Amino acid sequence: MPLRAHLTELRNRFFLVVAGVLVGGVVGWFFYEPMFHALSQPLLDAADARGGFAVLNFETVAAAFDMQLKVSLFLGLLLSSPWWLYQFWAFVTPGLTHRERLYAIGFLAAAVPLFLAGAFLAWLVLPHAVALLTEFTPGGAANIIDAQSYLSFVMRLMLAFGLAFLLPVVMVALNFAGIGQAATWRKGWRWAVLLAFVFAAIMTPTPDAITMIAVALPICGLYFAALGICTVHDRRVDRRRDAAGLPRLDGSMGTPA
């Protein structure tokens, strides 16, 4: 496919993703209040645990409306995750056969639960992070926190974890598209493990190493699981190339079947 066609395809997929998120955001608008209370609850629980007081503050007249838009779009992003994940798959795999396009079902079946699982893990980590960060409040003082800053922090945390859990699915998608070979992922496994632990250390600002390890290990496990799938796929491709008398993925010539 020419570069111009790729750019046109990217633009069209982007507009479809935006449309899906906006539709999800309309639905999310009606669930704003319960979502707002759920996101702010860790802060209130942390204040109660130390016998203090915390409240979210909207500094300007339009801040509450602006926050409702952001939370609604955040919900829209979660609700429309099957849609925009499919658009990603359809963009990176335009040259696959009809039979191979059926893998989109497997892609979505793995990607959507992983994305939501990552966001849920962030939700589990959030109370510990909030409790630690508010622990430094002096006695007799109260936490009057800007609502936009706090809720944006929570939503970015959940999205970051969700996208991190999509790493193995992206690896497999690129592999099936012929862009990333298993050998490439295998050579970079040390960097992948290092980045997983760095990510966990940054996104879990708690003093204990157990929480960091508990976050990093699932990401590492998903990486190696994806590496195994890519390895099996590349071996199948090499067998087909051997049968056709074509060079293997690494450029070597195999034994014809």
Rank of each mutant, 00 (worst) to 15 (best):
M1I: 05
P2S: 11
H6S: 09
E9V: 03
R13D: 08
R13A: 10
F14L: 07
F15V: 08
F15C: 10
V17G: 10
V18H: 12
G20T: 03
G20K: 02
L22K: 06
V26R: 08
V26Y: 07
M35H: 14
F36I: 07
F36Q: 07
L39Q: 14
P42F: 01
L43Y: 03
L44F: 15
A47C: 04
D48L: 13
G52T: 08
A54M: 01
F58D: 12
E59N: 12
A64N: 10
L69K: 10
L69R: 15
L69D: 06
V71D: 02
V71L: 13
V71W: 04
L73A: 08
F74W: 00
L79V: 04
S80R: 05
L85V: 05
A90M: 10
V92Q: 00
H98V: 14
R101M: 07
L102W: 09
A104R: 09
A104Q: 05
I105C: 07
G106F: 11
F107S: 05
F107R: 09
L108F: 00
A110Y: 03
A110G: 09
A111Y: 03
V112R: 10
G118S: 14
L121M: 14
A122G: 00
L124S: 10
L124P: 06
P127S: 04
H128A: 15
L132C: 13
L132Q: 13
T134L: 14
F136N: 13
P138E: 11
N143V: 15
L151I: 14
S152F: 10
F153T: 06
R156K: 12
M158Y: 11
L159W: 03
A164V: 03
F165I: 01
F165M: 00
L167D: 09
P168H: 03
V172P: 04
L174Y: 01
N175C: 03
N175D: 03
N175R: 00
N175T: 02
F176C: 09
Q181F: 13
A182M: 09
W185K: 00
R186G: 01
W189R: 13
R190G: 12
A192S: 09
V193D: 03
V193I: 02
L194T: 01
L194I: 02
L195I: 12
F197T: 00
V198I: 11
F199N: 08
A200T: 02
A201R: 02
I202G: 12
T204C: 08
A209N: 10
I210A: 09
I213P: 13
A216C: 00
L217H: 04
I219A: 07
G221Y: 00
L227F: 03
G228Y: 10
V232W: 14
H233N: 12
R240M: 15
R240A: 14
A243H: 11
A244K: 09
A244Q: 06
G251C: 12
T255G: 14
